[in-house]
Design a protein around this nucleic acid. Structure first.
Length: 745
DNA sequence: TATATTAACGTTTTT
DNA sequence: CGTTAATATA
């Protein structure tokens, strides 16, 4: 092989000698970069320069001519991460890296699958379906078998199927595993049967869901050694980011690909594993050494991101987790910074107000808004902040909130494109046959379904055929014909007209745009605007097919983020990001740690929640603030809440407690206010802690007992569930409250 | 068939 | 509370 980058001439033209980039690394980082051959596991704590190691390593391999760009595979967890890494590598080696295989597991697997689709029973133009379609399909499968959806909700089945797929299990393997799993027990033990039916349905539709991309990838590799060998040769070096969040299917997929040359480098942090609910297995980290004997392990423990107080608080918190590999992060002693501010507020509104005030204070001090982030546990929490920020005119953006491509009107428009480009896409066809309303209801559709079934045609083709017959009455027939002719015409237009314009024509001809223009609801104008935005975005793609692939996998759109705005996002989507100032609201029992995580997964769930808190804190470079509210309105109900146990777990020397009321805006040097003393020990069963103000409350109430609540007044207890009471209040009606907010009357 | 009204339901995190 | 699914009516 010749030198892909012609280093000699690069050197002679004054470009930096290839070793320069190594000088920017510390000793362990350089070690991780230099060990290009053989299996390598990098345990990289938060803020230890993990991305730098990954990108430098890629650059190093390229610059030392160990491989061509297209022989490098770099797998990331999100598309954003892939993009960033790509840009940074390009910067390092000073040329474009379009030939590198950068992407998420799903994107890479989809790309490989396109080339061998027939081998797993798909066609290469298979479509990738999203969650909505999955549910729709499963509902069809269920109703076709007379299974009561009330008792056996499709969501539950989907969850089980996805766990199977996460573990790389086809229906056959799931059957072999036996009926003891929850998913197998679905609908009285018909889980596997339904899983199989669902898979058959997907194949018949020439469609794959997200899990299939990996699952089919596995069957492809294991069933066709020649194909596997081809890809093993293709990827001479494999890098994996966020390794702690890979699931078993992904792990097996990697192992197959890396088997021959073993040039696999995985970078991860067990303390940041936050996706076990989606099938991620931290155990993959432990397995690595076993499956790749002689693997080199490098630990990155020097933190370059956060101040000592922030790091100390985060470390103290995570030390409460039992199942850890154990790392000791450290930073420069002189980088002390400010203590983590912990502050209690009365309710969610006050919380939002306080955060906005503090952000404005920071802005006055010259901080950029883009360096401020509000990281919430659950999506609904963003609303309070949005409302507050809007009223005071503070620019913000919600990252990953309502994704562009998930909006109804965008999905509809995409369905039109799909049917046009992929006439066999029945799911897309079903979505828009009668949208806008064109008089094609159940009765008109029946003959189409029948014909499609009898002749083995797709719905769109069957519809075109029916439109030519007198099967339907004149009115529906005419409108069906208009639609099918439309698809034909638009397809033809694509050959001559720019695809963005074709989509515009499509949405006009079909009456779809018109439908929203005539809609008088408040959201309608926004939807029209979104459709316009969609047409504009189409320009960024070569053709419709490429765009549709992008949509299926990426589900987020590059928004121009050149404006200075506060970031609001969930803790999950904050992973991998960093900000100077981080606000962490909602640290309350029940919300964070989330009640459901605890209920469903017990201690393991709690530890994952704690890791999530750790991720949140370690996002901060200069300042971190934790908030909790004593009351939170959820739907209509007021819910009293206790401060999160995580607050107690923050080491006192790194934390400053601020008074609950009456002070804000005054910078960050408030006086410490002693918080109520908490018992250090006895983390036993939900023993109620004392509560501010009332000071009363006890664990034991009796059913029917008359009690008093600060906010709701007098009432009688109608049910007791642990420390949660349901109380029929005399004025306020039935509410759920925590026992410690209640006193005997 | 399409609309209007009512009931039920849900909020953890996402490729 | 707000959205969506199911049901009754025009």
């Amino acid at each position: 092989m010749t030198d892909p980058f012609d280093l000699d001439s690069a050197a002679s033209t004054g470009a930096p000698p290839p070793n320069d980039y190594l000088a920017a690394l510390n000793e362990t980082q350089a070690e991780a970069v230099a060990a290009t051959e053989g299996p390598l596991l990098v345990l990289a704590g938060a803020g230890t320069g993990k991305t730098r190691v990954l990108t430098t390593r890629l650059a190093h391999i390229l610059l030392t001519a160990k491989a061509w760009p297209n022989q490098l595979l770099a797998v990331t967890f999100t598309n954003k991460a892939a993009r960033q890494m790509k840009d940074r590598v390009a910067e390092l080696i000073n040329r474009n890296v379009d030939d590198l295989w950068f992407g998420t597991f799903h994107a890479i697997a989809a790309r490989i699958l396109r080339r061998h689709a027939e081998l797993v029973g798909l066609k290469s133009n298979y479509s990738i379906i999203d969650a909505d379609d999955q549910i729709r399909l499963l509902k069809q499968v269920l109703s076709g078998r007379d299974i009561d959806e009330k008792r056996w909700p499709a969501r539950g089945l989907l969850f089980g199927i996805e766990r199977w797929k996460d573990r790389g299990m086809t229906p056959d393997k799931a059957a072999a595993e036996g009926a003891d799993s929850d998913a197998a027990a679905f609908a009285d033990g018909r889980g596997v049967e339904l899983y199989r039916a669902y898979q058959e349905r997907l194949l018949a539709l020439n469609a794959a869901d997200f899990g299939d991309l990996l699952l089919h990838g596995l069957t492809l590799f294991t069933g066709h050694p020649d194909v596997l060998e081809r890809w093993q040769k293709q990827f001479r070096y494999i890098l994996v980011d966020e390794y702690q969040d890979t699931n078993v299917a992904q792990y097996l997929w990697l192992r197959l690909l890396a088997q021959s040359h073993r040039n696999l480098c995985c970078v991860g942090d067990d303390d940041q594993s936050i996706y076990s609910w989606r099938g991620a297995e931290v155990a993959n980290i432990l397995r690595f050494e076993k499956d790749f004997p002689g693997a080199k392990i490098v630990r990155l423990e020097r933190n370059y991101r956060s101040t000592a107080h922030i790091l100390g608080a985060a470390s103290g918190l995570i030390s409460h987790n039992a199942g850890r590999l154990g790392k000791t992060l450290w930073t420069d002693a002189d980088n002390t910074g400010e203590k983590v501010a912990v502050q209690g507020v009365w309710d969610g509104d006050e919380e939002a107000r306080l955060v906005s005030d503090q952000i404005e204070a920071l802005r006055r001090d010259g901080e950029r808004l883009a360096e401020c982030a509000v990281l919430v546990r659950a999506g609904f929490q963003t609303r309070a902040f949005e409302e507050r920020f809007i009223t005071i005119g503070l620019p913000y953006m919600v990252v990953g909130g309502l994704r562009f491509y998930e909006r109804q009107e965008i999905r509809d428009a995409i369905a039109y494109m799909r049917v046009t480009v992929q006439p066999d896409n029945d799911l897309a066809f079903e979505r828009i046959v009668n949208l806008p309303k064109r008089g094609l209801g159940e009765a008109s559709l029946r003959p189409i379904y029948k014909l499609a079934r009898d002749q083995g045609l797709s719905l769109a083709r069957a519809a075109a055929a029916i439109a030519e017959t007198d099967e339907l009455r004149p009115k529906p027939r005419a409108s069906l014909k208009a639609l099918t002719d439309g698809f034909e015409r638009w397809r033809g237009l694509l050959k001559t007209v720019a695809h963005g314009d074709v989509v515009g024509i499509m949405l006009e001809d079909s009456g779809y745009s018109e439908m929203w223009r005539r809609d008088k609801s408040v959201s309608a104008p926004g939807r029209v605007e979104n459709l316009r935005e969609l047409e504009r975005a189409l320009g960024d793609f070569e053709n419709l097919e490429e765009f549709l692939e992008h949509v299926s996998l990426v589900m987020d759109m590059d928004s121009a983020d050149d404006n200075d705005m506060v970031n609001i996002m969930t803790l999950h989507s904050a992973k991998g990001l960093e900000f100077d100032n981080v606000f962490l609201p909602g640290w309350e029992e029940g919300l964070f740690p989330h009640e459901r995580a605890l209920m469903e997964n017990g201690d393991a769930g709690l530890e994952e929640e704690r890791r999530l808190a750790y991720v949140g804190l370690t996002r901060a470079r200069k300042r971190a603030g934790v908030l909790f509210a004593a009351n939170r309105r959820i739907y209509n109900q007021w819910q009293s809440s206790l401060p999160s146990r995580f607050i107690d777990e923050l080491p006192g020397e790194h934390v400053i407690r601020r008074a609950a009321v009456g002070l804000q805006g005054g910078g960050l040097s408030e006086q410490a206010v002693p918080w109520r003393a908490r018992r250090r020990a006895a983390p036993e069963a939900g023993e109620p802690t004392s509560v501010p103000d009332t000071g009363a409350g006890g664990g034991s109430f009796a059913l029917g007992e008359r009690i008093f609540h600060q906010k709701f007044g007098y009432g009688r207890i109608i049910s007791i569930d642990g420390n949660k009471l349901e109380v029929a209040f005399e004025k306020a009606g039935v509410k759920k409250v925590i026992d410690s907010f209640v006193v005997a009357a």
